[in-house]
Amino acid sequence: MTALSLIVPVYNERESLPELLERLYRAMADKQLHVLFQESFSFEIIIVDDGSIDGSDKLVREMISTKQELRLISFQRNFGKTAALSAGFKAASGRYVCTIDADLQDDPFAIKELIKKLEEGYDLVSGWKQQRQDPLGKTLPSMVFNTVTRLFTGIPIHDFNCGLKVYRSEVVRRIELHGEMHRYIPVLAHWNGFAIAELPVVHQSRKYGQSKFGAGRFFAGLFDFLAVVFITRYFRRPMHFFGMMGLISFLSGFIISLYVTLDKILYAKPVSNRPILFLGILLIILGAQLFSTGLLGEMLSTSSSGSGNDYTIRDTVNFQSEV
């Protein structure tokens, strides 16, 4: 079994790749890292090319001939970072799994420190870009995102979306990623009962190119945040969510309708053309619909099975078995 699998999602990072791989190989040669495993240390570097159009995959193919630890998964088109990580997780054979971005902003020599922290009894250790070297247009939204996620989930992590993370293999086999949920991997891991921790890491300015994430990612992140909150709390019991909302709506409508009825009986007030009556009827109907949605959700969660992949692989290179 491979000791450590390094997963690198890549999208148009041809300029960064040679330097990144040189850094990774130097970090993997660190004697302190070998001592941590107390065994014959072996590693693999899985490059997941997310439909690059700048020749990133061709460069990796050329490098594979001289670097036997290098693997390549090449997507048919751009499917996003979540899909790239998901494919890498499924292909990884290491006892430990590390993810690192290809933009050279993370220090590969921090990997051994994250593994040391992992050995203290944790299942996932996430990097914390404590001194982030990014423009305000990225740091401010990220600060808001991390604060909101921390408040709603109760997980005391400062940087949920740091690309540098180390996992035990059980974690990556257990969690399922969809949409843009790579931002919420610590949340999903915590929901599955894994112990998570955080460690400050050095963050560097981007050396080549520019960020691949535009303003649209914040809307996607908002929707995925709502999805993650629902999944982690109500995925196996949707009736608790929809049923409670339905019950509140139904009872509110019933009380309003009862009030209108008693008003008619006791004080002979007309029922027609009273807006409050229509509100009561609307709330009763809405309550019944929400309750029905909860029942349908319960049936689906009970009978549903695993779905297919959210990506299409064009080909793989240098794997022992088919990914």
Score class of each variant (00 low, 15 high):
residue 214 G to M: 01
residue 3 A to W: 01
residue 226 L to K: 13
residue 240 H to M: 10
residue 233 R to L: 15
residue 197 A to Y: 00
residue 126 S to T: 12
residue 13 E to Y: 02
residue 38 Q to D: 15
residue 227 A to C: 06
residue 31 K to H: 05
residue 103 D to C: 03
residue 63 M to I: 06
residue 187 V to W: 01
residue 174 R to D: 13
residue 310 D to H: 10
residue 318 N to K: 02
residue 170 E to C: 04
residue 315 D to L: 04
residue 36 L to R: 06
residue 267 Y to D: 12
residue 187 V to M: 07
residue 148 V to T: 09
residue 252 S to W: 06
residue 84 A to R: 09
residue 133 Q to I: 01
residue 25 Y to D: 14
residue 26 R to K: 14
residue 188 L to C: 02
residue 131 Q to A: 15
residue 236 R to S: 14
residue 95 R to T: 01
residue 178 H to R: 14
residue 203 H to R: 05
residue 238 P to L: 05
residue 101 D to E: 12
residue 64 I to D: 03
residue 128 W to A: 12
residue 251 L to W: 06
residue 99 T to F: 08
residue 244 M to Q: 14
residue 300 L to C: 05
residue 292 S to T: 11
residue 202 V to K: 08
residue 104 L to F: 06
residue 50 D to R: 09
residue 167 Y to Q: 14
residue 261 T to E: 12
residue 98 C to F: 01
residue 102 A to G: 09
residue 214 G to S: 15
residue 184 Y to G: 03
residue 304 S to L: 06
residue 4 L to D: 04
residue 43 F to M: 05
residue 81 K to L: 13
residue 68 Q to F: 02
residue 248 I to L: 15
residue 23 R to Q: 13
residue 151 L to D: 11
residue 49 D to N: 14
residue 122 Y to Q: 05
residue 174 R to G: 08
residue 72 L to H: 07
residue 37 F to R: 13
residue 161 N to F: 00
residue 318 N to W: 00
residue 171 V to P: 00
residue 92 A to P: 00
residue 149 T to F: 04
residue 38 Q to E: 15
residue 94 G to I: 07
residue 62 E to A: 07
residue 32 Q to V: 00
residue 271 V to S: 13
residue 11 Y to C: 09
residue 302 T to Q: 12
residue 192 N to H: 04
residue 220 A to W: 08
residue 89 F to D: 08
residue 240 H to I: 01
residue 245 M to V: 08
residue 9 P to L: 08
residue 278 F to L: 14
residue 225 F to K: 15
residue 34 H to W: 08
residue 234 Y to S: 11
residue 48 V to K: 14
residue 115 I to H: 07
residue 158 H to M: 08
residue 169 S to F: 00
residue 61 R to P: 02
residue 293 T to M: 12
residue 89 F to N: 10
residue 291 F to T: 15
residue 25 Y to I: 13
residue 285 I to L: 15
residue 105 Q to V: 05
residue 296 L to F: 03
residue 5 S to Y: 04
residue 227 A to I: 02
residue 317 V to R: 05
residue 126 S to Q: 10
residue 106 D to Y: 00
residue 119 E to D: 10
residue 206 R to A: 09
residue 102 A to I: 02
residue 151 L to F: 06
residue 96 Y to F: 13
residue 150 R to Q: 11
residue 281 I to R: 14
residue 48 V to R: 13
residue 189 A to M: 10
residue 282 L to A: 15
residue 184 Y to C: 05
residue 195 A to E: 12
residue 101 D to H: 07
residue 144 V to F: 08
residue 6 L to W: 02
residue 250 F to Y: 10
residue 284 I to V: 15
residue 104 L to N: 07
residue 9 P to W: 04
residue 69 E to M: 04
residue 86 S to C: 06
